[in-house]
Simulated scan of single mutants.
Amino acid sequence: MALLRVLLSLLIIGAAVVLGALFTLQNTAPVPLDLLVVQLSERAVALWVLLFFAAGCVVGLLGGAVVNLKQRAGNARLRRQHKKLELEVGRLRRFGLSESD
């Protein structure tokens, strides 16, 4: 199963590289980029598109990492609360109280 996952990953990465290369070869017209405050020099359209695509991927990964960290912190808090409540239920059962009381 791990071999299949590796092969599938290599296939997807290879296809992305080939498509990126074809996209770059087809879009070679030089264009300046004006970002309201800064005007960048002329580069190929494909370069600008691929750079901003990569920047978007990085921003998306960072956003996902922030959400993941928040969820892990919430899960840890809930685990601590669960453990604390289990101890309290155990103490109450030792004193003769049950859930139906």
Results as ranks from 00 to 15, higher is better:
residue 22 L to Y: 05
residue 89 V to D: 15
residue 4 L to F: 08
residue 101 D to E: 09
residue 88 E to A: 13
residue 12 I to C: 09
residue 73 A to Q: 12
residue 26 Q to H: 12
residue 40 L to P: 01
residue 6 V to Y: 04
residue 83 K to M: 10
residue 11 L to V: 11
residue 85 L to C: 10
residue 26 Q to M: 14
residue 96 G to Q: 02
residue 49 V to I: 12
residue 51 L to G: 09
residue 82 H to W: 05
residue 89 V to F: 05
residue 77 R to T: 05
residue 21 A to W: 12
residue 60 G to M: 08
residue 39 Q to W: 02
residue 36 L to C: 04
residue 95 F to L: 14
residue 82 H to D: 13
residue 33 L to P: 00
residue 11 L to P: 01
residue 89 V to W: 06
residue 10 L to C: 12
residue 19 L to P: 00
residue 80 R to N: 13
residue 59 V to S: 03
residue 23 F to C: 02
residue 57 C to T: 08
residue 35 L to R: 07
residue 75 N to Y: 07
residue 39 Q to A: 13
residue 70 K to P: 04
residue 26 Q to E: 15
residue 59 V to Y: 09
residue 28 T to D: 10
residue 86 E to H: 10
residue 52 F to I: 01
residue 53 F to Q: 11
residue 87 L to D: 08
residue 86 E to W: 01
residue 71 Q to E: 12
residue 84 K to D: 12
residue 13 I to S: 14
residue 91 R to F: 07
residue 50 L to E: 13
residue 48 W to I: 03
residue 86 E to A: 10
residue 96 G to H: 06
residue 86 E to S: 09
residue 6 V to L: 08
residue 89 V to L: 12
residue 25 L to V: 00
residue 80 R to G: 09
residue 38 V to Y: 03
residue 64 G to H: 02
residue 85 L to E: 15
residue 41 S to V: 03
residue 96 G to K: 01
residue 62 L to Y: 09
residue 33 L to E: 03
residue 82 H to M: 06
residue 36 L to G: 01
residue 37 V to I: 10
residue 99 E to M: 00
residue 1 M to N: 12
residue 65 A to E: 11
residue 24 T to Y: 14
residue 53 F to T: 11
residue 56 G to L: 04
residue 50 L to C: 01
residue 27 N to W: 08
residue 24 T to I: 03
residue 57 C to W: 04
residue 4 L to N: 05
residue 51 L to Q: 09
residue 26 Q to G: 07
residue 14 G to A: 08
residue 64 G to Y: 02
residue 80 R to K: 14
residue 36 L to W: 08
residue 86 E to L: 12
residue 85 L to G: 06
residue 70 K to G: 10
residue 44 A to P: 01
residue 87 L to G: 06
residue 1 M to Y: 13
residue 7 L to E: 12
residue 60 G to V: 03
residue 93 R to I: 04
residue 94 R to S: 11
residue 92 L to T: 06
residue 26 Q to V: 05
residue 7 L to V: 02
residue 23 F to K: 00
residue 18 V to R: 03
residue 9 S to W: 05
residue 14 G to R: 01
residue 75 N to C: 06
residue 12 I to P: 04
residue 86 E to I: 05
residue 53 F to Y: 04
residue 48 W to G: 03
residue 38 V to H: 05
residue 42 E to G: 05
residue 67 V to S: 13
residue 11 L to Y: 08
residue 4 L to H: 02
residue 77 R to E: 15
residue 40 L to H: 03
